[in-house]
Structures are given as C-alpha cells and as structure tokens.
Simulated assay, not measured.
Amino acid sequence: MAILHTVVFRLSHPAGSPEEALFLDTARETLTVIAGVRDFTVRRQVSAKSDLDWQFSMLFDDQDAYDAYDAHPLHREFVATRWATEVEAFQEYDFVDRP
C-alpha cells in the first residue's frame, strides 16, 4: 500500500531569503536521489490559520520503501545537519488510501 509522507514546517530563515531558498533547494536535491522517493513536491502554505510556511510531500510504494528512505544515510544527514538546525517547528503526517 502506497504511503504519502508529508511534513509542514517553519524555517528559522526570513521569508524570501537566500537561506530559505538554499534550504528548500538542498532538500529537493538531496532527498529526491534516494531510491523509492516519488513525486517529491515543495509547497508554500498560505492559510492564515497556520503558522507553518512550507510543505514537503513524497510518495512511497510501500512501508519497506518508506523505511529504507527513513534509514538512508542522505536522509539522516540532512535531518541532522540541516533540519535540526534550521526548522523551528513542524508537523508530520503520513497517509494511506482508504481500503
């Protein structure tokens, strides 16, 4: 069963800054080369009801593909060196289609 992995977040960088752009570009470049990642998207959140600004989403064919991504050294390094230091707040949601 396919898994849609999403995370909505706020960066420590000012909106429109070069640092913000670099973080988003680095995420795309790093995470999309990991086997099993499909349909990676970056979206700006525009609702005034949330203080989180950005969303990443990606699709995995199954739990094994998701687990391999989660354990992959590139993902782990990105989380440790960029996510942990540049993301102020986030919410993560993973979805599967209703049977």
Rank of each mutant, 00 (worst) to 15 (best):
E29S: 13
V79A: 06
Y69H: 04
E29C: 09
A68C: 08
Q63V: 14
S50G: 14
P73E: 03
L31M: 15
T26I: 07
D67W: 10
L59G: 00
I34F: 05
A71C: 11
I34W: 03
L22D: 07
D39C: 11
T41R: 15
D39K: 15
D70S: 15
E77N: 14
L52I: 05
R28K: 15
K49Q: 14
R43I: 10
A35R: 14
L31D: 00
V46N: 10
S57W: 06
T26S: 07
D67S: 12
V33I: 11
V42E: 06
E29M: 09
V33R: 15
V42D: 02
F78A: 01
T26F: 01
Q63N: 13
R28A: 11
R28D: 03
V79C: 03
D67H: 10
D62C: 08
T26V: 12
V46F: 12
D70I: 12
S57D: 08
W54N: 01
I34E: 00
T81I: 08
R76P: 08
Q55T: 15
L52F: 04
Y66F: 15
F60G: 00
V33C: 09
A48Q: 12
D67L: 13
G36M: 03
V46W: 08
F40T: 05
P73R: 05
L59R: 15
D70W: 11
